[in-house]
């Protein structure tokens, strides 16, 4: 699978001299963050606090 490629190019990316910026990762994870916040707001503030028989004591 990926071995040939690996064996052929062991040094092309060996150094950390030129830093790799994971832009795509940052974008994906930002989308995830937004989904988490929205879903939480819905579940907590609308579903949960909107229900009957809230336990108050």
């Amino acid at each position: 699978m990926s071995r040939t490629e690996t064996a052929g190019a062991p040094t092309d990316d060996a150094g950390g001299d030129e830093e790799f910026d994971p832009v795509g990762t940052l974008a994906l994870i930002a989308v995830y963050f937004a989904i988490l916040v929205l879903a939480w707001v819905y579940i907590y503030y609308i579903e949960f606090l909107g229900r009957d028989l809230v336990v108050v004591g």
Partner: peptide
Amino acid sequence: AFTVVASVEYGA
């Protein structure tokens, strides 16, 4: 989540 996705992105 960040580290793993970034590692994969590096491959791509």
